[in-house]
Write a protein that binds this DNA or RNA. Structure first.
Lengths: 233, 233
DNA sequence: TGTGACATAAAAGTCGTACTTTTAATTCCC
DNA sequence: GGGAATTAAAAGTACGACTTTTATGTCACA
């Protein structure tokens, strides 16, 4: 169950991070570095470096004479891509997917509106290209190919918004879309309505129609949320 | 200029993190742990732990035989509260404030809409209370007191949304509001229109009117964005 | 009996050094 | 000139000694 990992640090970090985010250690649980070193058969040095990283993610808190205390979910850095990946790989994957989808539904429409103002000609072209790619792969169980275009499309929108915070959500969106494709019923082709909406968004951005780009993206978001409700009511 | 800090680790981390996010080391700059240890007069152990943390924030990348390379802004974990704080304290504070305000303008309206559905009676009460607090302190240069209520208000909305990702933006919003109050013209009282909007949002949430809560919050956001444009065109 | 000062020890924090591993860069041979 | 072998530089890992903080238990005093 332990990730292969190149380097002791990565290995211990991955194992511990995954365990904590999976809720294997209830908040308040106290770990001792010596004990961890023994358990993982590594030096205290390595454990200490791992603890420092977990501490920076606010997963744990280290105090003298006490030890390394596991913190409650409320204090975790839930925007840390690493934490997101761990949680998506763990037990509360459904909860996590829902949270992230709601976040998307708030951010992406606004991002699309901004993209209509700020997208470079290159980005407009790329957007259209990806939308067409989605159309081309939307039928005939070509879900993997479709996914690539879908991810690329949303990434371009977020980047084209010109807002750094939005741009950095590209990875999160990629994770969500990948998660959806790989864990949902893989037997159905994507919703044709959604595909059309993507094409239209590309169009709206190209035509610098911000309001339309925003509204259309909002519709995509609504679709994604409904899909969630169907899958996990 | 060095933060006091309790503990060598915190001190070195704060200093290095601030310097990097301030752009003092252009991307690609290579640092060596030994050199850093010497510069800060601490052991290599401490420096290594710091580097590991900076690495987890994607501010730097450490490679054997090369050293610790500073990464470009595009790869930073810009949602890390620590990174946000460093950047707000540094040179590109204006850019950062704008990015965050745009993010707020996307998230908060949706959060308010959700809050109208999910807020507990306690949260409704708290919301009203804070809104009234804002009214009470909105005249007579009582900006500090006003700020406290303003922050509390937005925090409650984000928490009441029931979405974990939204809730975690409470700190970010607090930073933005604080930044605005402390770095803008401190001689004017808050915009009365904004104050009224807050009261109305509290009302809408209490009445479970999601659409109205969302729309009103959107207006607050528009106001915040305009304010930015006035201050830094 | 309760309370506050004090002593104790447990755990993290720091340091120095020695050693291993990876890998960029140089050298050398064909 | 190009590719293989060599070198060395830097991070990665380990270990042991020591320091510092601090929770907790102890003891004296009121």
């Amino acid at each position: 169950m332990t990730t292969p990992a190149q380097g002791l640090h990565s290995h211990v970090l991955a194992t511990l991070g995954l365990a904590i985010t999976a809720g294997e250690y209830p908040p308040g649980t106290v770990l001792r570095t010596d004990e961890l070193a023994q358990r993982f058969d590594v030096s205290r040095t390595v454990v200490r470096e791992v603890v420092r990283v977990l501490e920076s993610m606010h997963l744990v808190e280290s105090r003298r004479r006490v030890g390394v205390t596991v913190l409650p979910t409320a204090s975790w850095n839930v925007y840390d891509p690493q934490v997101i990946r761990w949680r998506l790989a763990g037990a509360d994957r459904p909860r996590q997917l829902r949270s992230l989808t709601v976040l998307r539904s708030a951010v992406e429409p606004v991002a699309a509106g901004l993209a209509a103002h700020n997208a470079t000609p290159d980005q407009c072209r790329e957007l259209t290209e990806q939308a067409l790619g989605m159309v081309a792969t939307s039928r005939g169980r070509r879900l993997e190919e479709y996914l690539v275009h879908d991810i690329a499309f949303h990434r371009v929108v977020l980047n084209a918004s010109g807002n750094e915070m939005f741009a950095r959500l590209g990875d999160v969106v990629a994770e969500v879309l990948t998660g959806r494709t790989h864990h949902h019923v893989m037997f159905e082709d994507p919703d044709p309505a959604a595909v059309t909406l993507h094409v239209q968004v590309a169009e709206a951005v190209r035509e610098r129609n911000a309001a339309r780009a925003e509204e259309l993206t909002r519709q995509i978001a609504v679709g994604a949320l409904q899909e969630l409700d169907v899958l996990a009511p």
